[in-house]
Design a protein around this nucleic acid. Sequence first.
DNA 1: GAGTGGTCTAGACCACAGC
DNA 2: CTGTGGTCTAGACCACTCA
Lengths: 245, 245
Amino acid sequence: MTLTAASRMQAKPLYQLVEDHIRSLIDSGDLVPGDLIPSEPQLAKTLDVSQGTVKKAIDNLVWQRLLYRHQGKGTYVSRIDFNNSLFRFFSYGDAEGKGVRIHKETSARRLEIGSAEICRRLNVREKTQLLYIERIGYGPKRQPVLVEYSHWLAELVPGLENEDVHIPDLLYALIVEEYGVPVVRAEETLIAEAADAPTAARLKIKPGTPVVVLKRVTYTSGERIIEVRTTKGRADRFSYKTEIR
Amino acid sequence: MTLTAASRMQAKPLYQLVEDHIRSLIDSGDLVPGDLIPSEPQLAKTLDVSQGTVKKAIDNLVWQRLLYRHQGKGTYVSRIDFNNSLFRFFSYGDAEGKGVRIHKETSARRLEIGSAEICRRLNVREKTQLLYIERIGYGPKRQPVLVEYSHWLAELVPGLENEDVHIPDLLYALIVEEYGVPVVRAEETLIAEAADAPTAARLKIKPGTPVVVLKRVTYTSGERIIEVRTTKGRADRFSYKTEIR
DNA sequence: GAGTGGTCTAGACCACAGC
DNA sequence: CTGTGGTCTAGACCACTCA
C-alpha cells in the first residue's frame, strides 16, 4: 500500500491522501468509534511517507474531531460527543451561559407506523415501523424546561419499546452499547417559535409563549439515519454565546 | 530577543512562546489588523528557533483566526469578520439556513447621556456621553425583520451623530476606516424572548410574538469596549444549523 | 530573480502509558 | 523496558507574488 506511486500526481498534497486513507478505514467500518488506529510509525511505513506527514494528516483529523490522541497510548477514532449539541447552552437564571443539569423522564414510549412527514425526514418509505419516545426534561425543583419528541427506526432497536428497559438520560449510550449501533454524527437546526398547545401543556407555559426548537437528525454508519428528534425548550431558559474574531 | 534562554524552563513548549510573542505584538498595538507580520525565516532568526517551530506557532494562530496566510505574500493580522456573527444564519422561508441580504436603514441617531445599565455594559462610568444609533433591517419586499439598538462611546466616533454622515450596512467598516478605531473582536449572546412593545411596532408584529435577541459587545484594542448592541429579529425568520461529531 | 508560504523528509530527544 | 505521541531541528524542493 504505497501512496507515492499512482496516488500522487493528483495535485493533492500527500498528507491529504493520508487523511483520505484514514477516513476510508473509518467509513468502511474497518475502524469504528473508540478504536485505536495504527501508530504513526506504522502508517508511515505502510504508506511509505515520513512520520511528519502522517502526523500532519492526523493533526488535521484531530482538528476535525474525527480522531483524538492520547499520549503514550495512541490515536483513537472519536466517539460522537453530544456535549457539542447546541442545547449544551441551556441555562438557568439568565443569559450567562451557565450549564445546568437536566433530568429526563420518559413520558411516552410506543411502537407506531411512521407518518409521511416523519418517514420523509428519516428517509425511509412511508408506514415504516417506528419507535416513538417522548421525554420531558426537568431542571432544579422539577420544573419542566424541555420536551423531546423522538422517532427511531424500530428494526435497529428491537425491544426498546419494552417498559422494562430503563432509558438513561443519554439515550445514545444505550443505543451504542446495547444494540451495537454506531452513532456516527448528527445534524441540528435551531429555530424559535411560539409554543403549540401540547408542548405548552407539557412545559406548563401558556400557548404562544416563545420556545426554542432543536431538530436533530442522527446518523449511523453509511449515512443511514436512525433517529429524528424534535426538542422544544422554554426560551427563557436558553442562551447561546460566542466570540467573533 | 532569544526565547531559548530564560523563557524556556517554563514547561511551555517553544512554539507556544512564539505564539505569545506574536500575540504580544498585536496586543501592544505594534501590529494592527491588516498588517503584514514578519516572515517565517525572519521570526525564526530573531527568536532563535527553527522555521518549523515558527510555522507551527503561526499554524495555531491561523487556526484561531488571529492571522491568515497568503502564499507568496506573507502572513497578515486578521480583520474581524462579522460574517461569523450568529446572525449570518438569518434566513427566509424556512429552517434551511439560506442567507438573505438584509438592508439596514437608520431610524434614529443622537448623542445622549448613558443610562446606568448601558454604561455598566460598556464598562465606563455612569453618564458618559454616548452615541445612540437605531437601525431597522429590511428583507425582500421591504419587510422589517430586525431592529438594532446600538450605543457607542461618543468620544471615539466624533461627528458620527451628524445626519450628513452616511451609515453603511456594515457600520464597522466606517469605524475602522474613517475613525481609525481598530475593531478587534466581539462577543455575542443569543436568546429568544417575547417581543416588547417598541420592538413589535418596529417589526410590525404583535407584542408577545417570539423574537430572537442578539446582544453584542464590541472591543477595540486593549480590551476596551467601544459598542454595545442589541439586535432583535423576528423568530420566524431565523434558524441556526450545525453538525455534531 | 528574490522572497514568501506550502510540502515533505529524516532524525533527534522528551514525556507518558503499560507491562 | 518498549512503544506511543509531542516537540524541535535542518534542510530540501515547490508554488506563488511582485518587481
